[in-house]
Design a protein around this nucleic acid. Structure first.
Length: 264
DNA sequence: ATGGTGGATGCTCCA
């Protein structure tokens, strides 16, 4: 099974880029974030025409929004609420092979890395704490689980272009990294991508729009992740970060992250 | 220290 996760930054604007992803990489399952469309206007027919007949989506007007596109049936589709908000940041489903998939769009957290001053950063930290509590309560060591999404945190030093210069920049501050790592360790998640592209190789999935030339200085961050539970670890067979997608016409600021898992 | 760009929306928010 080939699984992709991608912050597409508007599915309606980039439906042709989604088509390109499917043609070039042929994923079986695609998890999207920032679809930026209410459910009534989700381009379901266009997605089905690409071969993804089983679709789950949970969106709102203007912001956020997540979707799971699958060639195979999805079961037990569910969207959980986080921090008491209805803001469309999570969607889960069970894939063939009894694999429980969770797709997340973690709050970006605003500009100021101080929860006292910045409500968005406080929201991000609370969201991470809730994720930790939820998985601690709902995991089981034998369950095949996959967690993907735009987690809006680059946890490792080699996940950013400059560890030192980003220590006070939201996405790489110690408190965020600590909370994300706590989720990972307390619920036994395996970073699927780093199994194949280990530290200290630099690896990014996002480059800001706020630069004339995103390749200049290669100032990226790895904000998009694929984690698996221990029962799937030995079945991982590859991982790719589709860096080239940042050069596609009218690109998202994030590129797809792809993981292959042997299932039979 | 600042502003840089892009998307959805509608006289501005979010990333």
């Amino acid at each position: 099974m080939r699984l992709a996760t991608w912050n597409i930054n508007s599915i309606r604007l980039r439906i042709d880029l989604l088509k390109r992803l499917t043609e070039e990489q042929s994923p079986d399952v695609i998890c999207l974030q920032e679809t930026k469309v209410v459910d009534d206007l989700f381009p379901a027919d266009a997605v089905k025409a690409l071969g993804y007949l089983h679709i789950a989506f949970h969106g709102m007007k203007g912001y956020n929004g997540v979707a799971i596109l699958s060639r195979q049936p999805l079961e037990a589709v569910e969207s959980l609420q986080w921090c008491g908000k209805q803001d469309c940041r999570h969607l889960s489903a069970v894939l063939p092979g009894d694999i429980e998939l969770h797709n997340f769009y973690v709050p970006a957290g605003g500009d100021t890395p101080d929860p006292e001053e910045n409500d968005k950063f406080a929201h991000k930290l609370a969201f991470l704490d809730e994720m930790n509590a939820w998985f601690t309560a709902n995991r089981s060591s034998s369950r095949k689980m996959v967690l993907v999404g735009d987690l809006n945190i680059a946890p490792l030093e080699s996940d950013v272009w400059s560890h030192k210069q980003l220590l006070k920049v939201v996405s790489h501050t110690p408190i965020e990294v600590e909370k994300l790592t706590a989720i990972q360790t307390q619920s036994d998640w395996v970073d699927a991508v780093r199994q194949f592209i280990p530290e200290p190789e630099r690896l990014y999935s996002w480059w800001s729009y706020r630069s004339r030339d995103w390749t200049k200085g290669d100032r990226g961050r790895r904000l998009d992740h694929v984690w698996v539970s221990p029962p799937l670890r030995d079945f991982l067979s590859g991982a790719t970060v589709l860096r080239d997608a940042r050069s596609w016409e009218k690109p998202s600021d994030h590129v797809p992250v792809i993981v292959d898992i042997n299932t039979d």
